[in-house]
Design a protein around this nucleic acid. Structure first.
Lengths: 191, 191
DNA sequence: CAAGTTGTTGACTGTTTGGTTCCAAATTCG
DNA sequence: CGAATTTGGAACCAAACAGTCAACAACTTG
């Protein structure tokens, strides 16, 4: 009952995600959001409560879309090493294609390290990435794809950390050779 | 001639660095700067021109102080592997001691990826870090400290990338075990 | 159709923003 | 002394800020 919404909440969150991703939280004004989402100021506040809450939604959306996508690749892979290489090289491509965007998760971790909820969301997602890597590596070890004396969890923690570094170097305009090189050396840790 | 400055430019830049480091560029208002530097608004603009220019000075100061410090450790080390471990573990300690601060270089890379001058300063400094690592690794190889078939430049690019990842994970509140673990695995790349 | 409910809108609020300008007082040098 | 220059601080600016609101619009139910 009542007047139905004339805009789609999901696409609005997507567009907000895009804006926050590109510009960060502080540099994105409510005016930017009004313009970018194509809805009036009042509707925005009615639907989302505040800039802060909309940011939280956008961040969660990003985590669901990107981290989960990455995790599924790892879970579905029958060969783990190529899967991990593929994941890392895909991130390299994303950074090269659009260096200003980088990774919203990294941006959130650095820009909003004083905001509990943001930090919690970020570290939760990184925990999921670590767990997915650890799981894949565990399977790889069981199958003899990596040496038995390797510790999957330790490797996963290392790879998770390296992955964030990749995104930072991408934003710092490192070139393709640099990033792909770094990836290959990092993969050497699995040997 | 004229009245001499009553505040010290250097310590003012230091304080500005501290503020920008903690809060980022956007979240630091001119009011914060006036309060933090302990000088009046007018004096601040007379001395530094604008918030933007003061930020540039603060960032350069950070690079000179922290990157150069790190580089000197590497250059002076007689054993390279322990020196690299020491450098990485020191960063871990810094992150654990003050997670909200993180690394100003990483913060700058992510928050201000649309500002040419900032990005240039960041990537120049990362280039210096890479070069220092490469130089140290080159010496290590010459001395037989690492295997002859290792490529110092490739290893240096990997370590530079990993180092940035460490700082991000530190901000995401990874614990000591996680970070130290990641460091040990990363050092394994030298074997 | 009327009542009730919810959404949309854009003008409006009060605050804060980065930055400028003015000033009398202070301090130096020639 | 007097010219030069910086000081702190207040006043000021237009723009941008996050957020609110009353009036209007569209839907469901009775």
């Amino acid at each position: 009952m009542g007047r139905p919404r004339t805009f789609d909440i999901d696409t609005a969150v997507d567009r907000a995600m895009e804006l926050f991703w590109r510009q960060g939280f502080e540099a994105t004004s409510t005016e930017d959001l009004v313009e970018g989402l194509g809805i009036a100021r009042g509707s925005l506040y009615k639907a989302f409560g505040s800039k802060e809450q909309l940011y939280a939604l956008a961040l969660r959306r990003y985590c669901e879309r990107h981290a989960v996508g990455l995790i599924e690749i790892l879970e579905r892979a029958d060969q783990v090493r190529p899967a991990i290489r593929a994941v890392l090289l895909e991130l390299v491509e994303a950074d090269l294609a659009d260096p200003e965007r980088g990774c919203l998760l990294v941006n959130a971790a650095t820009e909003r390290s004083a905001h509990r909820d943001t930090v919690r969301q970020v570290s939760r997602t990184m925990g999921q990435i670590e767990a997915a890597l650890a799981g894949a590596l565990e399977r790889a070890r069981a199958r003899g794809e990596i040496a038995a004396d390797k510790n999957p969890r330790e490797l996963a923690q290392f790879l998770t950390t390296f992955l964030q570094g990749l995104r930072v170097m991408g934003k710092a305009r490192a070139d393709r050779a640099f990033l792909e090189n770094a990836v290959e050396v990092a993969l050497g840790a699995l040997d």
